[in-house]
């Protein structure tokens, strides 16, 4: 089943301006980790708003979980959101509760989880993201990475089928970034049905994902597996996207005359190859 289907999606913030999302079509099958990359202003965040139902007046078609979204049907959007979890860019502005505990509870309260069951959920999911020792901490005592982990716990407690990251790591330091990615990969190992769509400008993350969509000036310019997408070095350079570390190293070595076979496609394999 396709979790997300987008057909000829078009949206402009006002009538006279250039569309922020311009005739975009793609599908995301269940159980995949998909990254959507592009530099700032490429239309990534607008696309996220469209998928979450925060913007409703668009042209084209969006289907979530096999069900087309009726543009003005708020009740249906609310119902669909129950299957989706969101993690946004700014860690502070999505932390609703006064403590970690209360923030995770916020989503549970919205879904009318009975009071008696809440503590169990809170503990389980705080533990999953390694925040079980911080339950009574308030947000001003947490780092950005920790706040994002709480946001993920809040999302997981809802048992979503689709998790959407809207630049969830872009405000974090490298350690926070790595933690969030590690947690995400771990979650997918635990639950292979979980679909993740991550909107990001981190090419390393894109390189580790299953499928990559590249957006530029509102248009989808490339899509495919990381290996396919990042083989288009010139196109990516034109739209100011770097190659991931592994690929740039491989390219640099090749340029200096080293012959590297094509089946070397991860850092680990390259390591082994070089030390042979």
């Amino acid at each position: 089943m396709n979790i997300i289907e987008v057909e000829h999606l078009k949206y402009a913030y006002d009538k006279n301006s250039k569309p922020a999302v311009d005739d975009v079509s793609f599908t995301i099958p269940a159980g995949k980790y998909v990254t959507l990359i592009g530099h700032n202003g490429s239309g990534k965040s607008t696309l996220a708003k469209l998928l979450s139902g925060l913007i409703t007046h668009y042209e084209g078609k969006i289907s979530l979980f096999g069900q087309p979204i009726e543009k003005a049907d708020n009740a249906a959007i609310y119902a669909l959101r129950k299957k989706m979890g969101f993690v946004f860019q700014n860690p502070d502005n999505q932390f609703v509760g006064s403590t970690v505990r209360d923030d995770i509870a916020f989503g549970l309260e919205n879904r009318q989880v009975p009071h008696e069951e809440m503590d169990g959920f809170i503990h389980t999911y705080a533990k999953k993201v390694g925040m079980e020792d911080y339950l009574d901490q308030s947000p001003e005592n947490l780092s950005g990475g920790q706040k994002q982990r709480v946001a993920i716990a809040g999302v997981l407690a809802m048992h979503p089928e689709l998790v959407l990251y809207d630049e969830a790591t872009s405000m974090l330091d490298p350690v926070g970034k790595r933690d969030i990615l590690d947690i995400t990969f771990h979650l997918r190992e635990e639950n292979p049905n979980l679909t993740v769509l991550s909107i990001t400008h981190d090419v390393e993350e894109a390189f580790r994902s299953d499928y990559v969509l590249v957006l530029n000036a509102g248009k989808l310019v490339l899509e495919g597996t990381p290996a396919e997408v990042f083989s288009h070095t010139e196109e990516l350079k034109k739209i100011h996207l770097d190659a991931p570390f592994f690929l740039s190293l491989k390219a640099a070595l090749k340029a200096k005359g080293m012959e590297i076979p094509d089946e070397i496609d991860t850092e680990e394999k390259l390591e082994e190859f070089l030390c042979r």
């Binding site: 969101f86 946004f88 999505q94 919205n110």
Partner: peptide, 10 residues
């Protein structure tokens, strides 16, 4: 952003 996040969290 908070309003958006709250809405998305149901």
């Amino acid at each position: 952003e908070l309003a958006n996040a709250m809405e998305c969290r149901g």
